[in-house]
Simulated scan of single mutants.
Amino acid sequence: MKFMNKENEYTEEVSSLVWLWVLLFGMFYFAVKGVWRHVLISLILSMITLGISWLVYPFFAKGIMRKHYLRMGWVEVPE
């Protein structure tokens, strides 16, 4: 997936293996990408579920990243 900022035409690519990065690094992946809402949600859920949410969160990672960029006003670039 690629997203383009309409204001300055900067393009950011989200890896197709985003699920793997979230599985390996969990909330730290979201922190690097600047998705702070999901850093906090992931941290809270991992404490409540004793880490089991860390195994479930990767299934939603691609959608989370797509929604994050679209909410910021970026446009998805067709590949």
Rank of each mutant, 00 (worst) to 15 (best):
residue 25 F to H: 09
residue 15 S to M: 02
residue 61 A to K: 04
residue 6 K to N: 10
residue 51 G to P: 01
residue 63 G to W: 02
residue 62 K to P: 10
residue 38 H to V: 00
residue 20 L to E: 14
residue 24 L to A: 11
residue 79 E to Y: 13
residue 38 H to T: 14
residue 34 G to E: 15
residue 56 V to K: 00
residue 29 Y to N: 04
residue 30 F to K: 11
residue 60 F to D: 07
residue 18 V to G: 03
residue 29 Y to S: 09
residue 18 V to S: 11
residue 73 G to Q: 06
residue 7 E to R: 11
residue 2 K to D: 05
residue 50 L to E: 14
residue 10 Y to A: 12
residue 69 Y to V: 07
residue 19 W to V: 12
residue 33 K to F: 07
residue 41 I to C: 02
residue 50 L to M: 07
residue 48 I to P: 03
residue 19 W to H: 06
residue 16 S to E: 09
residue 42 S to R: 04
residue 23 L to G: 03
residue 41 I to Q: 03
residue 1 M to G: 14
residue 27 M to H: 10
residue 67 K to Q: 15
residue 59 F to G: 01
residue 5 N to F: 14
residue 28 F to V: 06
residue 56 V to R: 06
residue 50 L to S: 15
residue 70 L to I: 09
residue 68 H to P: 04
residue 23 L to N: 10
residue 50 L to F: 14
residue 20 L to N: 07
residue 1 M to F: 15
residue 22 V to K: 05
residue 79 E to M: 14
residue 72 M to W: 14
residue 65 M to N: 06
residue 70 L to T: 01
residue 69 Y to C: 14
residue 74 W to N: 10
residue 77 V to C: 02
residue 42 S to A: 08
residue 20 L to S: 06
residue 5 N to H: 07
residue 55 L to P: 12
residue 40 L to S: 08
residue 20 L to Y: 11
residue 33 K to E: 15
residue 56 V to W: 15
residue 62 K to T: 02
residue 28 F to H: 07
residue 6 K to M: 04
residue 56 V to C: 14
residue 73 G to K: 01
residue 14 V to A: 02
residue 14 V to T: 08
residue 47 M to W: 11
residue 65 M to L: 09
residue 36 W to N: 01
residue 4 M to R: 15
residue 67 K to F: 09
residue 76 E to G: 07
residue 13 E to R: 13
residue 73 G to D: 11
residue 8 N to C: 03
residue 25 F to A: 10
residue 34 G to W: 11
residue 60 F to Q: 03
residue 10 Y to C: 04
residue 51 G to C: 04
residue 39 V to W: 05
residue 35 V to E: 00
residue 55 L to W: 11
residue 24 L to E: 02
residue 74 W to K: 04
residue 5 N to C: 08
residue 42 S to T: 03
residue 54 W to A: 13
residue 53 S to F: 15
residue 68 H to Y: 13
residue 55 L to H: 03
residue 11 T to W: 01
residue 67 K to N: 15
residue 76 E to C: 10
residue 45 L to H: 10
residue 74 W to Q: 04
residue 63 G to P: 13
residue 28 F to R: 00
residue 77 V to M: 05
residue 49 T to S: 12
residue 52 I to E: 11
residue 65 M to G: 12
residue 66 R to H: 14
residue 73 G to R: 03
residue 31 A to M: 06
residue 16 S to G: 13
residue 44 I to H: 05
residue 22 V to Q: 09
residue 40 L to Q: 02
residue 27 M to Y: 12
residue 19 W to T: 07
residue 45 L to I: 04
residue 2 K to G: 08
residue 40 L to R: 01
residue 17 L to Q: 13
residue 60 F to C: 01
residue 67 K to T: 12
residue 46 S to K: 12
residue 9 E to V: 01
residue 8 N to P: 06
residue 72 M to D: 14
residue 1 M to W: 13
residue 12 E to P: 01
residue 35 V to L: 12
residue 63 G to Q: 11
